[in-house]
Nucleic acid binder design. Structure first.
Length: 851
RNA sequence: GCCUGGGUGGCGGAAUGGUAGACGCAGAGGACUUAAAAUCCUCUGACUGUAGGGUCGUAGGGGUUCGAGUCCCCUCCUAGGCACCA
């Protein structure tokens, strides 16, 4: 019936061409069909080409896409390129060529490789974050954030990587080394753009429990946001008109505080340190400043610190408490100062031991028996706390906060570990930030110019910074100036002091702006007549995360010229039904994208609060040695080579058969033989079997309908490995038959089609169908074949399997037990024994407990 | 250190508290072939018995249950995340 030889290369190329030319997988906006949006984390098109890990997630989303299309859904399955980023920039630096060229080549390679795997992608919606028509809207969203007071600039110590000549975000630094390249990094103060993601901490935390996400990822985000509830307590300082505020999650231990510690960078330190101690404190500050954060946060190291000579006054007892300085207190969390309760905090205890500070126990365990080992860090019953003695920690906490509030020396307080998002990079290959800087007086002119185009995105709180005693104000470009294109530059190398390569494009940087008309002209052309103001463009660019914060929206209306996403189309597609990508993005991309998306919801741009309601992480495919694939280990499997030797269908099928989608699992070059044989047997089966309008025998029908059900359930539950083994079981049976019914013959190939679409299209066509199998309605099972007349029941004696019986499914319990008692396997073990208990689980098991 | 997963044949893995090891790989034997490849058939957890069969077996130890890979407690190993966040 089909050709004798299974020539996968010819078959696969034929159908890939067919799908492309017939636009089989085009998604239709506003279709009346139910909609299904399957989204992959889009790749960074690296020079190395497609990795074996890419097709794993893509195949999973492709199976779902094809499955739901066959169920009659209008499916959106798009692909695009997250193409800004460091490797392309470094390539540009090394070769001196424009990163656009290299990026375009890499994108072409990725597209060709992905297309060769035969994914059901709507290529008419392809997007690229480096396309000005795309980043125009990335810039627009930035300006909206700017307008809503969610951005600011600050000269702050940031991670500076001398080797990369670039500033890195907290998240890009791992153990004091750059995430990319493992170069050392140091702290260095620079002017930076920062996004107030902390303003969204509560919203991001709240929505989390409504998401269908892996628990571990939710937990990571919860930990990253790091909400804690406690109290802020003010300690007046002896002899100085100042108060030191501390944050504590254990206000119940307030009476156990014996000293305070402030961070070396604390702004009050200068004012409170007594003159005799000033040298020691300054020396300590300098020593800390020289330390890398790795040294500073190393838990294993011995604590250090100096006494400031100052004393704080306990707000409840009036007792003077010494104020120490130590780098175990971080300026970036809470208020940069803590009250220390060595009896009930491990770190405070350690410090107190080292510097011989008093330890006062104020909490005892609920079921106290004898002495408590200190530090005791659990909650318990208060002691040595005057009027609070005998109260539980919970009650005391409330009572103490109450008292502080009455005294005006404390209040409830919620803190987050989440830090604001350092958003600027001193790089070329990123979205330019659409801001110009003007002098204070000129900013006043713009602000007073009614209808100035520069007021379109003007925030209520101006953004400014000071340099050499002069203030510079941020002026947002207006939307008609977008996109702000990346200018050509002569060198992609940042300057040694860390300025972006854009700073060298002086004719681009220095401009005249016209407050009334909004016109912008290069200063190089000389000052035009009229009321023009001198301005300098922002030369920092956005981080690579920016473009991936909203790409899921752009796929919906990729050519929309009036908004990031067409509101009507966004209302149609809503949100992806399925989002798949690596777990390495658990906190970075997934938190940033949630932030931007939620902001867009808040300003009415999108209809849903959350970008990705259902998320899944595919596991990693390891090399054959069980180690992570890497060039240096030489264990990299190249997908192109697999496709060349075994075909795209085999690659797809094998990656899905390897194990559970979420598991980390090693590649096995021998293992792929199994699925190759399976596909060959499938081909051979349709070559040899005769398909007619007759009936199948009962066992075949039963297995067929069971298989349909299992494959459907497994696809929907993402259990592709067991779906494939069911298909193998089904084929093992079918291929023994000389003839099968049309329903059986067609169903099998349709069940297999989402996994191995090319071979199935070919067989489908040769079975006489004129239309693509991708559009054929998916087979459904008939429940009548899933209920059995006769069931097999296992007979156990004392929990050990001794035999089995076949009984009618509707047999009475007494009949089943009688048959079980007298079955061949059971009789010898029952002889001479007394049955003390009979357990009968209908349709499953009978267990006799005997003595 | 803390928080999460996970530990099942030679290997990847399968098992709503109910026949452990489906499916596949590897291995053994056989058929076809001059031969090899490919393909097809049979066997394949360990120990034990001529055989019917028996005993053991899901990291280790305990427990709950008629019955535990699955639930509970402890220990070990392993992967991932967090890490002086007061």
């Amino acid at each position: 019936m089909v050709g004798r030889i299974y020539d996968f290369k010819t078959v696969e190329e034929k159908w890939q061409k067919y799908w492309r030319e017939k636009n089989i997988f085009r998604a239709e906006d506003f279709s009346n069909k139910p909609r299904y949006y399957a989204l992959d984390m889009f790749p960074y098109p690296s020079g190395a080409g497609l990795h074996i890990g890419h097709p794993e997630g893509y195949t999973a989303s492709d199976i779902l896409s094809r499955y739901f299309r066959a169920l009659g859904y209008n499916v959106l399955h798009p692909m695009g390129w997250d193409a800004f980023g460091l490797p392309a920039e470094q390539h540009a630096i090394q070769t001196g060529t424009d990163p656009r060229i290299n990026t375009q080549n890499n994108v072409d390679t990725f597209r060709r490789q992905i297309q060769r795997i035969g994914f059901a992608i709507d290529w008419s919606r392809e997007i690229n974050t480096t396309d000005p028509r795309y980043y125009r809207w990335t810039q627009w969203i930035f300006l909206q954030l700017f307008r809503h007071n969610l951005t600011f600039v600050d000269k702050r110590p940031v991670w500076w990587c001398p080797a990369l000549k670039s500033v890195l975000a907290n998240e890009e630094v791992v153990d004091g080394l750059s995430e990319r390249g493992n170069y050392p990094v140091v702290r260095r103060p620079m002017r930076q753009w920062i996004l107030r993601i902390t303003a969204y901490a509560e919203k991001l935390l709240e929505e989390l429990n409504r998401l269908d996400w892996p628990d571990s990822t939710k937990r990571q985000q919860i930990a990253w946001i790091g909400r804690s509830q406690g109290a802020e307590v003010d300690f007046p300082i002896h002899g100085v008109e100042k108060c030191l505020s501390v944050y504590t999650t254990r206000p119940d231990t307030l009476l156990g505080a014996t000293y305070l510690v402030v961070a070396p960078e604390h702004p009050l330190l200068e004012a409170i340190t007594v003159p005799e101690r000033w040298d020691a404190v300054r020396e300590y500050q300098q020593k800390t400043a020289r330390k890398s954060d790795l040294d500073r946060t190393d838990l294993a190291k011995i604590k250090t610190g100096v006494f400031s000579g100052a004393h704080a006054i306990h707000p409840l007892t009036g007792e003077p408490l010494p104020i120490w300085v130590s780098d175990y207190v971080l300026m970036s969390y809470g208020s940069g100062a803590i009250m220390c309760v060595p009896a009930h905090d491990t770190r405070d205890f350690e410090f107190a031991q080292l510097f011989h500070l008093p330890v006062r126990q104020v909490i005892r365990p609920l079921n106290a028996d004898g002495d408590t080992a200190l530090p005791y860090c659990e909650r318990g019953i208060l002691c040595n706390s005057g009027e609070y003695d005998g109260m539980t920690s919970d009650a005391a906490q409330e009572a103490i906060i109450d008292r502080l509030m009455k005294n005006g020396t404390g209040r409830q307080r919620i803190n987050y570990k989440l830090r604001d998002w350092l958003f600027s990079r001193q790089r070329y290959w990123g979205e330019p930030i659409p801001i110009v800087w003007v002098r204070e007086d000129d900013f006043g002119i713009i602000s007073r110019t009614a209808n100035s185009p520069f007021l379109e995105f003007m925030p209520s709180n101006p953004v400014f910074y000071e340099e050499d005693g002069r203030k510079f104000y941020a002026v947002p470009l207006c939307s008609r100036d977008l996109p702000l294109n990346l200018p050509p530059v002569e060198s992609y190398l940042p300057s040694d002091d860390g300025e972006s390569p854009l700073a060298r494009a002086s004719s681009w940087v220095s401009v005249w702006i016209h407050p009334q008309t909004g016109e912008i002209r290069p200063q190089a052309e000389g000052r035009p007549a009229g009321e023009w103001l001198a301005a300098r463009r922002e030369t920092n660019t956005m981080p690579q995360w920016a473009g991936s914060c909203w790409y899921h929206l752009r796929y919906m209306s990729p050519r929309c010229e009036t908004a990031p996403v067409d509101p009507k189309i966004a209302d149609y597609w809503r949100a992806p039904n399925f989002y798949i990508g690596g777990a390495e993005h658990a906190v970075l991309h997934l938190l940033y994208a949630r932030f931007w998306h939620r902001f867009l919801y808040d300003i009415g741009v999108v209809p849903s609060k959350e970008p990705y309601p259902r998320l899944f992480h595919q596991g990693i495919i390891l090399g054959e040695d069980g180690e992570k694939m890497s060039k240096s280990r030489g264990n990299v499997i190249n997908p192109d080579a697999i496709i060349q030797s075994s075909g795209a269908d085999s690659l797809r099928l094998y990656e899905m058969f390897l194990g559970p989608l979420e598991a980390v699992k090693p590649w096995d070059a021998k293992g792929i033989e199994g699925v190759i044989r399976f596909l060959k047997r499938t081909w051979k089966f349709y070559n040899e079997v005769s398909i007619d309008d007759g009936q199948d025998d009962d066992d075949t029908q039963r297995l067929l309908h069971e298989s349909i059900r299992k494959v459907r359930e497994d696809i929907e539950g993402l259990r592709f490995n067991t779906a494939i083994s069911q298909l193998m079981i089904l084929l093992n049976r079918l291929q023994k038959l000389p003839r099968v019914s049309r329903f059986a013959g067609e169903s099998f190939i349709q069940l297999l089609a989402p996994f191995a679409p090319h071979i199935c299209e070919e067989i489908w066509e040769q079975l006489g169908h004129g239309e693509s199998i991708a559009c054929a309605p998916f087979p459904n099972f008939d429940i009548q074949w899933l209920t059995r007349d006769t069931v097999t029941i296992v007979v156990q004696i004392n929990g050990k399997r001794r035999g089995e019986i076949f009984v009618p499914a509707n047999a009475l319990e007494s009949e089943v037990l009688e048959k079980a008692r007298t079955c061949d396997g059971a009789v010898p073990h029952l002889r001479g024994r007394r049955i003390v208990k009979e357990v009968h689980v209908p349709h499953r098991i009978v267990n006799f407990v005997v003595q």
